[in-house]
Amino acid sequence: MNYKKLDIFSPVVFVLLLVIYLVFSQIAFHYHLKELVGININTIYIIFLGLLFYLVGIYFSHYLLKNRDFSLDKNKIEKIFSEKIVLSLVILGILLQVLNLLYLGGIPLFSGYLKAHAATRIWLLSYLIFLPSINILMAKYNNKKYYLLFMVGLILFVFTGYRTTVMAIVISMLITLYYTMDLKWKYIVLSVAAIFVLLLIVGYVAVKSIEWQTWTLSPLQLLFYRAGYTLQVLDRAVLLQGSTNGQLLYNTLMGFFKSTDPRVIVGSTTLGYAHSTTSMIFGPALLDFGLYAMLIQMFVLGAVMNFIYMVQRSLGNIFVALYAILLAHVFIWIETGPTDLVVLLFFLITLILIGYSVTIRKGGV
């Protein structure tokens, strides 16, 4: 195999990462971490059925577009994403996060009480601005001095105590640099190892800082436990299909206007008490509308991700950064599920920009 031609960040890698996640959960079950006991075999069947529909979606979009040529209207892109505009947005995103921390009066990473209130509208706006702008800045105008802005922004988001946003920032940046700088394998391996260590540290510190909980697990055990726990929640969601009647989707789409966290609904439904919890990428659709909805979700996700992948591989430019952001969040969805409005907005923005600036024509034989 020619490893130089192997694209490790194609949409198919999602399947491999989900299988690794399942292996982590089995380790937790094997050692009965915090009394985890395992799941029903039917849940495993449903997971692999979902993965199958994801792969079918990838194949479907590839089949439709395999003889198509993509062309980019660079003038339209340059008007919107000049270096000054993108750099200004990066700085604005950083300043908003500083403002959010000042508003909170402390560092949520070290306080469970502060973390419970850290996801303000300022935080959301900061994330919505910073994540795409820093990736676009590095994809289009890669300059060593911009790495400092990346590090400053990353540290500020680490301070909020939320693993998912930190992971989205570092994973998306790795994917962006992978496509724009032709990273060598040793740097990719080192970056993945660094991301893994960062995941362990942020997750462990955040959990240990929750004043009303007591944890005795090591950082590595905690990682395995979260995988096993989330899979057990999915196991319960499989038995409760359709029980939320669209509440999760509604509260996700109304995220700017309603204070109800969809993950609290997941917890209330599967655990019987109000607790913010996750049910993997399959859980929300199963709870809202049942198996067929989950299969449609996975098919559409595979088709859309492969479409954006083909656009960015053909045209590069800002679409590298946008694809990196979306793929990073799809990775995170393996555990959390698609219950974040901001990620759906990233998908919407990406598809609008493709429609605005990309022309798709039938190519030659």
Rank of each mutant, 00 (worst) to 15 (best):
L102Y: 10
A119F: 10
V90N: 02
L199H: 08
L248C: 05
E78L: 08
Y146S: 02
L89H: 04
K186S: 11
Q213T: 11
T269G: 07
I318S: 05
Y127I: 09
I210P: 05
G267I: 10
V320G: 03
R263L: 09
I77W: 01
G267Q: 06
V238F: 13
Y113F: 12
I27K: 14
Q26L: 15
Q221Y: 08
S314I: 04
A237I: 14
K66W: 00
S111Q: 02
L109S: 03
K79L: 10
F150M: 08
L348D: 01
G242Y: 08
V158R: 06
A116T: 12
V197I: 15
T277D: 15
T270F: 05
F110Q: 04
K258L: 07
I46Q: 13
T339H: 08
G106Q: 06
L322P: 12
V13D: 00
V330Q: 09
T350P: 13
S218D: 11
D73S: 13
L18P: 11
T230K: 02
L55Y: 14
A118E: 09
D340C: 01
R361E: 13
I46L: 15
L220M: 14
H32P: 05
K145Y: 05
A116L: 15
G283P: 12
H32L: 02
K66H: 02
T180F: 04
L344Y: 11
A194N: 03
G290F: 11
L217H: 06
P132W: 02
M280C: 11
Y162K: 04
R361T: 14
A28Q: 00
D182Y: 14
F9Y: 09
I122Y: 06
Y162C: 03
N142L: 14
A168K: 02
L240K: 14
S133F: 01
S268E: 14
L240F: 08
Y292L: 15
V320I: 15
V98A: 03
Q247F: 03
L137E: 03
T278P: 00
L199E: 05
L55Q: 14
T43V: 08
Y273F: 15
P11Q: 04
G302K: 09
L348C: 05
L177H: 02
Y309M: 12
M305W: 04
F299W: 11
S268L: 15
G290M: 10
S357R: 07
V152Y: 06
L64K: 13
Q97A: 01
L114I: 10
L231C: 01
K144M: 04
P108I: 06
F60W: 09
G161I: 09
S268W: 13
I44N: 07
K184T: 04
N42I: 13
V311L: 08
K258P: 00
S88L: 08
T270A: 06
T120D: 06
L295Q: 09
I39T: 12
L322F: 10
L148K: 01
V86K: 03
E78Y: 06
Y147W: 14
I58E: 12
A328Q: 04
V320F: 08
L198I: 11
Q247C: 00
A293V: 03
V311E: 02
Q26N: 15
L217F: 12
G316V: 10
V365E: 08
V311G: 05
I169V: 14
L223M: 15
V166Y: 04
Y225P: 07
M138V: 07
L154W: 09
R236K: 13
E211T: 12
E83P: 00
V158H: 07
K140R: 15
Y309Q: 09
L114Q: 09
N2C: 00
D235I: 13
I91R: 02
L295Y: 10
N40L: 08
L315W: 13
F282N: 07
